[in-house]
Design a protein around this nucleic acid. Sequence first.
DNA 1: GCTAGCATGTAAACGGTTACATGATTAG
DNA 2: CTAATCATGTAACCGTTTACATGCTAGC
Lengths: 181, 181
Amino acid sequence: MSRGGDLALMILGFLNREPMHGYELKSRIAALSGHLRQVSDGALYPAIARLEADGLVERHEEQGAAAAPRQVLTITGKGRAELMRRLREPKDAEITDQTRFFALLTFLSALPSREDQVRVLRRRLEFLEQPSSFFYEDGRPVRAEEVADPFRRGMLLIARATGKAEIEWLRRTIEELSLPQ
Amino acid sequence: MSRGGDLALMILGFLNREPMHGYELKSRIAALSGHLRQVSDGALYPAIARLEADGLVERHEEQGAAAAPRQVLTITGKGRAELMRRLREPKDAEITDQTRFFALLTFLSALPSREDQVRVLRRRLEFLEQPSSFFYEDGRPVRAEEVADPFRRGMLLIARATGKAEIEWLRRTIEELSLPQ
DNA sequence: GCTAGCATGTAAACGGTTACATGATTAG
DNA sequence: CTAATCATGTAACCGTTTACATGCTAGC
């Protein structure tokens, strides 16, 4: 149980909203990040097959039409449970890695409990707040100003700006979600 | 030729500065991003072995000391050439993916030609400047304000802040490096 | 005496990339 | 008529993860 990486998460996340076939999943995933995350056929179709083998999705051939007839995919109860589990208890790497955390964020609203949502955001916030979130030398964090290499200094400046924007958004959102409603 | 991903690039990048053994490479790579990119032994040692098999690094056992004696690694001429080639002509994915681009930036100063450095930065800038760099719906870019889902809206806000900071730094740095010197 | 850190490695399972293969429909 | 888009898949290769395996040294 619990196979697959980001790709499996995204497939389940999209199918949780409505059934669709593989090719459409592909374009949805691409659109999600400005074609930044392109999915190859050789990754997508085997991933679907694995989800099916594990009973997380079902497939129904749509008749009529074309050469390669559409395989409409529907998430199962088991698939939905697995999606919720993965959103509720993401692995450390899914909190730590920006790209993977964004994949999580994309589907986080599918979690029915606000408390569970807040718990995930808090984990990310804690990670970003510890000063170890970037670039070490001789055992402790390096300040951008003291880095001689211009490219490494740039990385630090960018990382700092990014972190700041994200931390502010996380604090604001956690607060809003925590209000008694 | 031309095997390996980010990990091989980082190993070559570090060894280009000075010889060191595997365990130290491991801690350097971890320190580079605040333990964000952790390298497992099962990835590191095989990667070193591949580089050695390809003649890009050489290994000399350091005598004295311990149970598992240090294998001091030195980059070869061929390895240096391969590093330069990879820094000069990164693959699209290394420009597109933030994590991979940062790995490139870390070692970019090893490129002797400022023109070559600028060419790499320009590729990243062009990528960030095209509006397709984030989040599509119904065929064109989505504005944060019109996204109902609070988590997706957050992603857009964060991505916008990040992109802005990085674009500014890229423009400034390209200009500085382009000054006749 | 035990734990943490130093130091190197192997093997199975997994998942992604790249290239290949097929074929219908639609727009220029 | 031709190219792009729709639509699904397979197979070889590659690199990572995870777990296992070993053993020394230093500090508590």
